[in-house]
Design a binder for these strands. Structure first.
Length: 270
DNA sequence: ATGGCTTACAAAGTAAGA
């Protein structure tokens, strides 16, 4: 089965419906995973999204902040929403596609906490929360039954840029939240917890710069290019060979009132 | 010059993003 899958931190779904329409018209994803929808489920623009062809929509929102949603042209079944570290924040949504067959695929949509400004667990509770969140994800995935849950895709804004080429300056970002060694280490442990494969880096070699986020504050984001790769697409080993192409749709960063994140689009043959 | 902006919200100034 061919599947065009996209993940995008939309930074308010209500403020950026026009962007979703534009993206869908140009790239026709079968499934679009959104993060930071910033609204309650009841405020989600469901009719507008359905009219774009997404007959199957699962929403895990909350008031004002965070929130994830998975939009699909294909039938999906909601499996669960995990609330790590007991904050109750809407940061995860898992769905299954392909019904209850042997070939079904579980798709996890995550919005990992950003972690605040200061990369110090003691001085900054948000940084502590981010590390705890990543640790709980690791624990949860290492407890997963590997046989029954072997075909999995994990996408989302993981808010960590692991490689030196995932940031515009490795040296200058070593003490900046998102690229500190302790975060990179937590992400590595998460990856190892289920032998996850970094799909984006399967298509772009690790010695090439690759970003998905550019600050709103740059005068000219493309010219200064001070980006980071904060958004990710991972698969379990059973799907190692399944991705056919990957592209960061960076032109979306130039559209009217853009999100500071660009969509990541992957074509799979599942 | 990695914060110069942008969002949400009991609505003018905070909190948050990263």
């Amino acid at each position: 089965m061919k599947l065009k899958l996209a993940t995008w931190n939309i930074n308010s779904v209500r403020a950026r419906l026009h962007l979703i329409e534009q993206f869908v018209a140009r790239h026709q994803p079968d499934i679009l995973c959104l993060q930071e929808i910033k609204c309650e489920d009841s405020q989600f623009p469901l009719e507008a999204i359905r009219s774009l062809g997404f007959s199957h929509v699962e929403i895990r929102g909350q008031k004002a902040y965070h929130g994830v949603a998975t939009l699909s042209r294909l039938p999906i079944e909601r499996i669960e929403c995990r609330c790590f570290n007991g904050t109750g924040e809407a940061r995860h949504l898992a769905v299954r596609l392909g019904g209850k067959t042997r070939d079904s695929v579980t798709l996890h949509n995550f919005y990992v906490p950003a972690g605040g400004d200061v990369p110090d667990e003691k001085a900054n509770p948000k940084f502590r929360q981010k590390l705890d969140y990543l640790s709980e994800m690791s624990r949860w995935f290492s407890d997963h039954d590997r046989k029954s849950a072997s075909r999995m895709i994990l996408v989302g804004d993981l808010n960590v840029a692991p490689l030196e080429t995932d940031v515009w300056s490795h040296k200058q970002l070593l003490k900046v939240v998102s690229h500190t060694p302790v975060e990179v280490d937590h992400m590595a442990r998460l990856r190892d917890a289920h032998d996850w494969i970094d799909v984006m880096r399967r298509h772009v070699p690790a010695d090439e710069k690759l970003f998905t986020w550019w600050s709103y504050r740059a005068r000219d984001w493309r010219q200064s290019n001070r980006g980071r790769r904060l958004d990710h697409v991972w698969v379990t080993p059973a799907l190692r060979e399944a991705s056919r192409s990957m592209r960061v749709i960076d032109e979306a960063r130039d559209w009217e009132r853009p999100s500071d994140h660009a969509p990541v689009l992957v074509e799979f043959d599942l």
